[in-house]
Amino acid sequence: MALSALQRDPAGGGRFASAVPEPCRRLPCALGVDEAGRGPVLGPMVYAICYCPVDKLEQLEALGVADSKTLSEAERERRFGLLEAAGDWVGWALQVLPPDHISACMQQRAKYNLNELSHDTATELIQFALDSGVQVAQVLVDTVGPAEKYEAKLRQRFPGLGVTVRPKADALFPVVSAASICAKVARDRAVLHWNFVEDLGDPDRDYGSGYPNDPKTKEWLRRNLEPVFGFPRLVRFSWGTAQALLRDRGVPVRWADEDPPEDPPAPPSVLSYFARSPPRRPPHRFFQERSLRPLAEL
Amino acid sequence: PAQWVLIAPEAALDPPKKPDSEPLFTKLRNPSTGEATLYLFNSGAQQLFEVKAFHEECRSWFIGQTVQQDGRLLFVTPMDPLFLILYYLIKADKEQQGKFQPLDQVVLDSEYPSCPLLLKCADVKQYIQHVTEEKEIGSQKFHKYSQEKTLKWLKKKVNQTVKALKSNNISVGERVLASTLINSKQITDAQEDYVRYAHGLISEYIPEDLSKELLKY
């Protein structure tokens, strides 16, 4: 099964791809890009490309890949099965971004926000297709953000390719819709088969839709919040929902490089300027350099 | 906290040979600052150890399956008890105008009841001659602080410290040099730098007036 490697270790993320069909190496192809799992507070985000020769686009549409958002999970699985069966002329590739990777990017010192991560992932997948020998002629991309800037960026990156970026592109272009199906199926399977790397016994998987406003998801988060360690790696710690719960129910943790507290320190007492005892000599630099201090008590 | 993380030599933690003589953490008068400072006597108070904490801001411990807010790492290292005894010898010398006295009447401190244990440490009664003049009347010994002998003894301590600094490649120059930077030029710290640094370290263990005398010496 094409996604069996992903199902064995969803937490590991990574790239998964079909073999490049032989016609795609000879004939000009349309390549669609879409994503799944941008909004949920748990699970990976998946970027997918799907491509086929331009003269096979009508056949692709006939597989029923249009309007993927309206499909049930079972229907999506079925249509992914059809795409796999058409593997002699349809190819696909996925990049699975694990939730801890998303959180780390968003929270690291030099912030790498979700939009930048998304654009870079899409760009890398397109490049992967080119490097794998796919004769990409057109690139069609679904976007939630401003389309013009993203389109200009991709055109600059891939001169010589026709690039079209549109909101709701999955409803307009069958190859984007096919990519959407690949991404959604992959994400659904990753969440369903999630391997908790934490040794938590048998954690319940009743996480609802995974969206922050889903009461079932919120309840799951509350049940699975460990006060010192927070959540399992399935959860995106950088999401506002997760951060609020950690603030309210987690143990406070302070880091040396965090911003100073909002309240300024109290001004020193006037009496402190009239000290009776002479100022204490600082410790020898041998001890200062090594952060070694005497103790008055344990 | 109910537990601490501590690195100590085995001698500090040897089991007691007699009941009621376990290792003892106790406060004694710091000879340099005069303030209460934590020390350790091993079983039977044979040896004295100073206790220092490696203490950086924003540190905690995982110890087994617990978390401990207090992120200090304690170090216990052997210490020459004469450094602590010196304070009382100097004080007695000032107060009693240079009278010879028995040690157990000198090394007393109402604020630090463990103070007499300093005299139980191995070989103290023998090595006390490094810092005092001694008289024997009958079977009893009497001691009087000797600055001259003390400075000679401290000079040996400084020289030993200089050797240890060199053999451990401790940078003692006035320049600030991060230990993680490797300097391509061969820069040798001057002997004076070593002596000043060692004097500074020894001064952490003696009263300030004595430190000034030692610097001149």
Partner: peptide, 22 residues
């Protein structure tokens, strides 16, 4: 030894979340 201050003393499922490595 942690590079942060966890403001709590008590049990923590360390083995569940961390793997010790030399």
């Amino acid at each position: 030894l942690l590079p942060c201050c966890v403001q709590h003393d008590g049990p923590a499922p360390v083995a569940a979340f961390l793997r010790a490595r030399p």
